[in-house]
Design a protein around this nucleic acid. Structure first.
Lengths: 339, 339
DNA sequence: CTGAAAGCGCTAACAG
DNA sequence: CTGTTAGCGCTTTCAG
């Protein structure tokens, strides 16, 4: 059923020339007479010949596949979608194809997915670290695969990483709430196994400490990984005696859970809220949602350019590039504490 | 700098066996003594040998690369993100890698991106049609590449396609607004070059006709491709004398533009709105946004399963699978006409 | 300028 | 059960 595909040999036969001449023409190598070029091109066109990308790779020095492996949390999440799009765009500039995979937050899937990329001989990797250690990548690197981590710093290995300024952003959120008069501020975060979650918690709690709030007394709820768990946790905290007057949510799904919880209790104009990362339409809600905005497209862009630089031979020291974040006031974070 | 990678030959030498024996062990072929298996596996482990995926493909019947090309509008858009995620998930079940690319709405990019996928010998393609004709895919199919279109039906070629029930959804929106008493209802849509935009307009306008509204009098504004253009167009229509009492927006970005325009004019509780496709947080706005909800994950899932069936040899007639949509009432679409 | 020979890393086909 | 030989489609090397 699947038709036989013409090879270079077929083209050579049809054009009545040697195999190597066809190879020269197809690859645009010099030192071929115009007449030959024409004959070969015609024969190739007549057969609709397409060179076998992977066969040609086999004998070429460097053996590049001009492809790149991209491991994201989940493409279905707009945050990762923006990162993916940036990586795609930069890759397109370099004639490089992008292989994509989503790990979710399953540590066990990270290494197999990376191994799969490597098996396919990608030239570079843009990775999201979800496992406890990324030590295993050393072996891949030893084989000449360049790699960079995005969004989260790796453990157990020295490598390039492009991350948001998580700590500063969370600290800014804390300072903002304190400035608006809050003292009882609760933290709702993702799984502390995730690097960003730890950074944000640290930035947040330490800033409260600097503001003179005993850090031991800050309510901290963690391991919230979806809207629903977050919503339930927040409902519970708010229904206890002497509840917090302000909330900080360390991630967009948690922020959405908080919004839903506050609405359900009718407290969305009473309890202040600052979220880390954008929430869609956050400016159109009542009140608008104050967030620490990240720039995922920028992160993806920087990360991709970094791998391409490495692939081009850049051997300077590994670095951590920090992409700034920005507190965006939209109402929910400027609510005063309830009497 | 990039280290030399061990080959099967190296493993054979180290284990003191023939090349083919190593091949057998690596591929789990039968008829190898346990002792041999152990020796080979140890040698392979010591060298951290990994078979060359593409070299092995070369001599294998079928020549499968176990990879799939996915062309979406843009991964940065959650609609396509969900489709991409579904395709990824199904592909993972089949041990197949996903190559991804975004076309935006640039008709000129479609064919080159598909050609690039084909050049890399993907086994199958999941495609979004943005060019005027998809006739060119016939050549690819002739080479044994299976393909399916998603979201939009192709032109000029008979092929599998998975689409939303655009016409019925748009008609349902029109009927809903009529039922709530509206007669002057405006349509705001995307570029009519896009198949879905045409289908939705047709479904919408024809339903109004059936309701006895002269279709020639229905205000139709098209070619709105982003929030901003949409917002401006809607502001303009609403500021004219005798403005519509209800709006239908045929796409999520246009819907968002409409929401912004209505807010700016303070008319969000006066003018009814039904949008096609989900808008994030649409249920939390005031009023909630009534939409015709699509199921992009489902579309991606069905499309992916269809290509895999084709790749497995299914040669039944090409079909168009229609994924149902659902009108979700949330407030904005149930507003009565202003006096 | 052109082409024949060798070989990339691996698997199929065929002997032992 | 094991190994040898040929060859996948192409590029390199090297000789005309």
């Amino acid at each position: 059923m699947s038709a036989r595909v013409p090879t270079m040999r077929d083209v050579a036969a049809r054009a009545g020339v040697g195999l190597k001449t066809v190879s020269r023409v197809i690859n645009g190598e010099p030192n071929v007479s115009p007449a030959m070029i024409a004959r070969v091109q015609q024969a190739a066109a007549e057969l609709d010949f397409r060179p076998d990308f992977y066969a040609s790779r086999l004998r070429r020095p460097g053996r590049r596949t001009h492809s790149l492996g991209l491991l994201v949390g989940s493409v279905a999440n707009p945050f990762w979608g923006a990162i993916a799009r940036a990586v795609e765009d930069v890759s397109a500039e370099h004639g490089t194809a992008v292989l994509i995979a989503s790990v979710d937050e399953d540590p066990g899937r990270e290494q197999p997915l990376v191994a799969e990329f490597v098996r396919r001989h990608v030239d570079g990797l843009v990775l999201t670290a979800v496992a406890e250690s990324q030590e295993y990548v050393a072996a891949e690197r030893g084989r000449g695969t360049q790699l960079v981590f995005v969004d989260r710093s790796p453990s157990g290995v020295d490598a390039d990483a492009v991350v948001s300024d998580n700590e500063a952003g969370a600290a800014a959120a804390a300072a903002h709430l304190v400035r608006h008069g809050h003292r009882r501020i609760a933290y709702f975060g993702d799984d502390p196994l995730i690097w960003t979650a730890r950074e944000r918690r640290r930035g947040f709690v330490e800033e409260l400490g600097r503001a003179g709030i005993p850090t031991a007394e800050v309510p901290v709820v963690e391991s919230l990984r979806d809207e629903d768990t977050a919503k339930r946790a927040i409902l519970e905290v708010l229904s206890q005696p002497d509840p917090p007057t302000a909330l900080f949510t360390s991630q967009n799904l948690v922020t959405i859970g908080a919004i839903r919880a506050l609405r359900e209790l009718g407290l969305h104009r009473e309890v202040a809220l600052v979220g880390f990362d954008h929430v869609a339409m956050g400016d159109l809600l009542e009140p608008g949602i104050t967030v620490v905005g990240q720039d995922p497209y920028r992160m993806g862009d920087v990360a991709a350019r970094l791998v391409f630089a490495r692939m081009a031979g850049d051997e300077s020291a590994y670095e951590r590039r920090v992409v700034p974040v920005r507190l965006i006031e939209r109402g929910s974070g400027e609510l005063p504490p309830r009497s």
